[in-house]
Structures are given as structure tokens and as C-alpha cells.
Design a protein around this nucleic acid. Sequence first.
DNA 1: CGTGATTTTGAAGTCTTTCAACACGCGTGG
DNA 2: CCACGCGTGTTGAAAGACTTCAAAATCACG
Lengths: 248, 248
Amino acid sequence: MLNERSLTVSQDCAECPIRHRAVCARCESDELERLEEIKYYRKFEAGQTVIWSGDRMDFVGSVVSGIATLTQTMEDGRTQMVGLLLPSDFVGRPGRASAAYDVVATTDLVMCCFRKSPFEEMMRQTPHIAQRLLEMTLDELDAAREWMLVLGRKTAREKIASLLSIIARRDASINMRTATGTLVFDLPLTREAMADYLGLTLETVSRQISALKKDGVIELEGKRHVTIPDMARLLDEAGDDSDGGMFA
Amino acid sequence: MLNERSLTVSQDCAECPIRHRAVCARCESDELERLEEIKYYRKFEAGQTVIWSGDRMDFVGSVVSGIATLTQTMEDGRTQMVGLLLPSDFVGRPGRASAAYDVVATTDLVMCCFRKSPFEEMMRQTPHIAQRLLEMTLDELDAAREWMLVLGRKTAREKIASLLSIIARRDASINMRTATGTLVFDLPLTREAMADYLGLTLETVSRQISALKKDGVIELEGKRHVTIPDMARLLDEAGDDSDGGMFA
DNA sequence: CGTGATTTTGAAGTCTTTCAACACGCGTGG
DNA sequence: CCACGCGTGTTGAAAGACTTCAAAATCACG
């Protein structure tokens, strides 16, 4: 269960699926060449822990494919997800010695890693990397603040609707479709992971999903395959301004 | 009530109380000189709104003295605080046209402002500023994630204890004392602001403060003056590992 | 087709909110 | 000097939302 298989997969940055969104997005070709020298790929299986909170962090990296979660756990076992890491998202904090959160692979996961000190050195020499990392960090901070509103002030039903709309939106964005009208996607999270995301119990998550289904806000095939017949309706249930969400 | 009085207070960066912590912390003296050319001070009275969410942001800046809050509001009036801005904290996002949150002065407030485009230009030319801003943004992201655990998983009593310990700690840090043993400080927030911070109602905040007082975890003189006889006890009530909090 | 993980559903219990009334502190003005 | 009004804070009682505990249903998979 805990055998950490780490395979090396050589690959060209120019062909990388996250080339234009990751921390390297602004790099010129000569900068990419230098990154290629220090990068290496690691694979993790669904359910595997990538990093334990408190461990020494000797690498940073980007999610290439798959999904990972960032979670905090209290001594008594209560856990709260504090980040949902999708392809192109950055893991780790330059300048910090040990990990502040658990990172767990939710699906099979491929990461593009850099040993920490060469990456930090590269950051000092390459403003493009630091610039992009700042931009990404500001985006994450905005997302975290949006999430704080969800956690602090929304009802269970609104929380579920919010999470579904976030997933629907990013799914549309990855597949280059518009996030309006009818949308279809697979939930990448278990009920328990959704509960940890939203500060609920898994039973409440299940009940609210059933309620949204009964009310026709969503349709389900199996447990994970979701159809949103009317995105505006879902956004309304989430308590958001239904401005359509003009984000990248 | 809404007369926005903005006074200009000329002042020397070298003497600035937030010189070593703000976005300019890493700047050399020649860089400071250039910043001095584009900076200006603005004062706000307690209660005044500094920026309305959605407004065009034509400046960014640092809190010099006083306290401000960052809040989000839903259409029906529910509000969630998403940031507590203390001296040296940065306001505004380079590269963004309009404000995403309301910024409100909780106490009388002095800000050191920069018009946005000159500041953005300066950021491009001055890696020290971008570096420092990245560092500060990463710190804020960590704080937001800690806050998410509080919002999502802690009980009302733990939430209050968490907030009190955060304020106690930063107060000790500003006054250069250790955050252990007995601590004394004034609450900079009303019960309602605390409720907005913690995702509670102001009644629940009041009840839990009374309960902590009854149990001897805190002592009160008036409504705002707090004594913590035993910081470790408070941290325990907050549900945190009582590791003493080794932060700057 | 059985086994374990995941999910759903029910019933009771708990915590927080809601609604309401009252107390306190403070500045204004009679 | 004291009454009044207003913002802020406290407290009580009832209602409500979510959790907890328990059991059954469904799904994935060998």
C-alpha cells in the first residue's frame, strides 16, 4: 500500500501538456533547456501520500496529470482540505524547509519535480519563473478567499452547489468549452473528500447531493457521473452572483 | 460620514515604522529613493471604506498604522472576512484592474500608496520588490489555509480561542515580547467583526467569550481589554499543537 | 457471486442560530 | 447634573441545521 514507486519518464518541455499554464509558462526556450536539466518526473498511485506534513521538503514541482489534495489534520483526526491541486498547479514553497500540509494523490498522479535548491537558484536567476510563481500564488490566494466565504457563510446545500460549479467550470476550461448551459463531468472526489473540502460530514454531503438531484438541479448516472442541465440554476443554488464567471 | 479625507503626510522611508517588513523591505537605498518619488500617504478614519469591491483599483499600498479588514459579501448580506490587514501588510493586486473585496478601516488608518501603473513598472525593474511580494503572498496563503481549518472544522469555542491566540501572538510580536505565559492586549475588533472573521453570529461570539472568561482561560476588563493568564492553555483550547508557534 | 469500500438513508442528539429583551458606556443637550 | 438615545455587548428561549450513530444499499472488482 505504501510502496512509493517513483518512475522516471523522460519528456520534452515543448510537448508538455501544462507548458502554457505551469510555473514555467513564461520561460523562453533557453530557460526551458536549463529547467529540463534539473527536472525529473515522479508518478504516484491513487491514494498515495506524496508528502507528509512536517517532512523535510527537498523538492518542489508541478502537477502534470491527475489530481492531488492539500490537507491539514488536527490531533483528534478532524481534517480540512486546504487546496485542490489540478494539472499545472505548483506544489511546495521555495524557501521553506519542511512541508506544512499533507499532499495526497486523489487519482493516479504525475508530477514534474525539481530539487529544491537548484530550483531556488534558478528562481533567483530567472525573473520569468518568479513572476509566474507570484501570479499563480496570487490566484491561489484569491481562490482560498473565495473558499473561506464558502466555509464560513454558506449552507450545506450552497456548499455542495459551489463545489460542483467549481469542478464543472474547471472541467469546461480544461476541455475548452464554455461553462454555460448543459455540462457533464465526473466527480474526481469521494463523498468524504468533498466533505473535507467543504467542512461537512460525508453523510451531509450525500444528503445534499440527493436533494439537489431530487430538485432537478443535477442529474446523476452512478455515483460520480454528473450532468448539470442548467449551469445558471446551479450558480444560483450556490448563492453566487450569476455573472457567468469570467475567469481563465 | 462618507467624506473621504485624504491628507498628504510627507515622510522619509528610512524612518518608516514598517520599513523592514513591508513590500519595500528588501529594497536598497537607491530603490527606496525611486519609491519615495511615487509614494503618497492617505489617512482613513475608523469605519471608513478604503476600497469597494468591484471598484477600479488605481493604487496599491501598504498599511503603515491601524487595522483594516478584507471582506466578501453575498447578495443577501452575509459577510465573511477574508483578510485582516495589519501594519506592513500589502493591499491590492498588481495586474488586476478592479478590487475583488471590500477594504474597510477598522481603526484610524494610514496607508502608504503607490499609483498602480508606476508601481507595476517599478516591480518589473526591481526584483527586490517582486521577491518580497512573493514572500508576503506565500505567507498570506499559509495564513488563509490555517484560517480555512478554523472555519471548516473548529467549534465555536475553538474558533474564539484561535482568534484570540492569533491576536495575542501578533501583539507580542509587534511589541517584541515572547508569546508565552501571561499576555495582555486590546481587541481591535468588535464582536461583529470577530463573528465575520470566524463564520459565526455575534451572539455566539459573545457567549463563547463569556464561557472562556468563566472558565478562567481569559480575563476581561471592560469589553475589549483581554488578559491571557496562560498562553499554553489558550492554545490548547484552540485545538492547536501547543508547539509555541515559532513564527516571525 | 462474494467481499470490502463507498454511498445512502433514518432517527436522535448537539451545537449554533434566530429572535427578543435587556444592560452598559458614552456623548449630547435640556 | 441627569435624561435620553445610540452603538455595542450580553443573555435567554426556541428553532433549526448539521452531526452522530446505526443500518442498509450499491458499487467495484477479483
